[in-house]
Write a protein that binds this DNA or RNA. Structure first.
Length: 139
DNA sequence: TCTTTGACGACTG
DNA sequence: CCAGTCGCCAAAG
C-alpha cells in the first residue's frame, strides 16, 4: 500500500484506539503506539492527534475533536504536553470536565496522577474479542 | 528539494 | 536530576 494510504490507516488506527480510552481516564502517546504495534512511534501518535479536525469546523466528520477523546492522551511523565499555553490549558479544562484531577507543576505544567487516572491495558479491548478464536496470528 | 521542527519516549552520560 | 541522542515521519519553512 502506498505511503499516503499507510499514513491514513495509521491515523485512523490512532483515533480508534483513543476512542477506547474510558471516560475519566488518561493514557500516554507511547502507550497508544504500543497498543498499535509500533512502540517506536509515540511521536506519530501526536502527529495524528494534531491532525484531528475540530468539531467546530466539521461537526459531522467521522473523526473530529468531539467524537475522539484526544484530551485523554498525555505524555509519559503524566503531564499535558506543552505545545502552546492555550492548547495545554484547553486540554486541561476538557479532561477536568471528566472529573480528572489536574494539578500544576512548579513550571506551570498540568499534571495528572497516573496512579489514580491512568489506563494502560496490555491490549485494546476491541482486539480481545478476536482472541477467542482458537488460532489467530497477531500483527 | 532540502532542512527543521515537533501533541513522544527510551536510553546514555 | 538534567541534557543530549536517536528512531519515526508528516508538515512547515
Amino acid at each position: 500500500m502506498a505511503r499516503s494510504e499507510e499514513a491514513a490507516a495509521w491515523t485512523y488506527a490512532v483515533y480508534n484506539a483513543v476512542r477506547e480510552v474510558p471516560y475519566g481516564k488518561v493514557t500516554s502517546y507511547g502507550h497508544i503506539a504500543r497498543l498499535l504495534g509500533k512502540p517506536e512511534c509515540p511521536r506519530q501518535v501526536g502527529v495524528s492527534l494534531k491532525a484531528l479536525i475540530s468539531a467546530t469546523a466539521q461537526p459531522d466528520a467521522h473523526y473530529n475533536s468531539s467524537n475522539v477523546p484526544w484530551q485523554r492522551v498525555i505524555n509519559s511523565k503524566g503531564a499535558i504536553s506543552p505545545r502552546g499555553v492555550n492548547g495545554a490549558r484547553q486540554q486541561a479544562a476538557a479532561i477536568e470536565a471528566e472529573g480528572v484531577q489536574v494539578t500544576r507543576g512548579s513550571l506551570g505544567e498540568y499534571l495528572i496522577d497516573f496512579t489514580s487516572y491512568g489506563w494502560f491495558p496490555d491490549r485494546l479491548p476491541s482486539d480481545l474479542s478476536e482472541d477467542d478464536e482458537d488460532d489467530n496470528d497477531e500483527e
